[in-house]
Design a protein around this nucleic acid. Sequence first.
DNA 1: TATAAAAAAACGAACGTACGTTATTTTTAT
DNA 2: ATAAAAATAACGTACGTTCGTTTTTTTATA
Lengths: 238, 238
Amino acid sequence: MDYQQFKKMMLASRQDIFLEVIAENRENIRIKKEKTVVKNLDKIFKATLKISNQKGFQAMSMRDLCQETGISLGALYAYFPSKDDLLSMLMTQGRDAVERVLDSETLQFDDPWGKLKAFIRTHVYLSEIMRPWFYFFFMEAKNLNPSDRKKAIEGDLATEMRLESTLEEGQKLGQFEKRDIVLTAEMIKGLFANWYIKRSKFRSRNISVDQYADFMIEFMADYLGVEDQLGKVSGENM
Amino acid sequence: MDYQQFKKMMLASRQDIFLEVIAENRENIRIKKEKTVVKNLDKIFKATLKISNQKGFQAMSMRDLCQETGISLGALYAYFPSKDDLLSMLMTQGRDAVERVLDSETLQFDDPWGKLKAFIRTHVYLSEIMRPWFYFFFMEAKNLNPSDRKKAIEGDLATEMRLESTLEEGQKLGQFEKRDIVLTAEMIKGLFANWYIKRSKFRSRNISVDQYADFMIEFMADYLGVEDQLGKVSGENM
DNA sequence: TATAAAAAAACGAACGTACGTTATTTTTAT
DNA sequence: ATAAAAATAACGTACGTTCGTTTTTTTATA
């Protein structure tokens, strides 16, 4: 599956997660009609990401958000109880979406190299579609309240563990060369972050998502000494 | 040269750069005695980095800084004209120091691989000693005023160009395997950032600076197909 | 060396402004 | 006509910054 296919598939499932987040926070939202909530909360989330990614969430004022969304100050507070809760909701929605997609695209694989490849490709594609979210997670993680902060760290650690166990399994099966697992996992995560943080740089150099995913997979194949140099899986699963 | 040697060498030259920054901003500083300026501005810079790296520069209030430094609100403003100027001064001091050290440690090399190795090792060591600065650059770059922002981008681009030209030269001489230069340079920078951004993670896993530098050099040797797998140069220059 | 005068530095209360948030009023939709 | 949603104006608070005063340090004089 290349990026275009992935994108189509994603757009279908995005709405579900959004509705679930709304359902979870229903008591905090004063608006009655579901349709109105969906329309305006979407607008609010998008505007928050836009402004925050320019100047940081703390520096974003409610008046900034008011202007960007076209919704008045008073009306905004019908959709969330406080600025801090808005941050919470945004983080939750994003993390849930990411986790769900990563799971659905990688759990099906048995062999470590297949799993690793799928994980890399999915992560790169996902971070492209949801770039504002990924950038936001990265930059605003330290501003979270203790509870959300804990959740964020746990989520991060889970991803890391999955990566490390895949590498370990590959080494045990003799599929991968022996490398420092922690460092390797950390490096992979660093390369992921590189894509969504320096996105504009890659755009100006005309490097596509698919190129970057291929590059990372080729890179890892090289480093781990795997024979299959072709990034894209030819089978029916991916 | 290993990290301990590098550290010793660095500490000697740090003071000079600090004095130069003070000299450049002399008209903005109301304090007459050089010694007082050095003592307190150093305190102010360190406190700013500490607080900013916890909660962000914007979120740091002058009262926070007042408490951390032990200098009163009124006195603080004798050392810089505004909070924004404080940010400027910090950025300038840091960037100047980094650029100078990187230059002094890499310009002497002729062969691309030697230069690349020196660049990697110097950068990793430097970002270890000046970690608060590097973290600060990374996180606060978007909060700069247009003029400082331009300078920061230019500095970044210069580093990138130097990296790319070294890679290109190595390819031309047949020393390196043919790889996408832009992507490779971007990846190296990503690995640099990984070190100072996830510093606590590496510490908890007992990975030392020297190990990380060796890891990166070995990694690049592998990727570029260079014979010399030994990270550390045996000659007298490095 | 001791002391008075001058300069330098530090202090902390006060200013205006912009923030997050809310209570009240107005508009819109049913 | 009634309920829902949006808009407005206002609240208290915390911010960056300033300024008159006090404290400390340096210099000058005996």
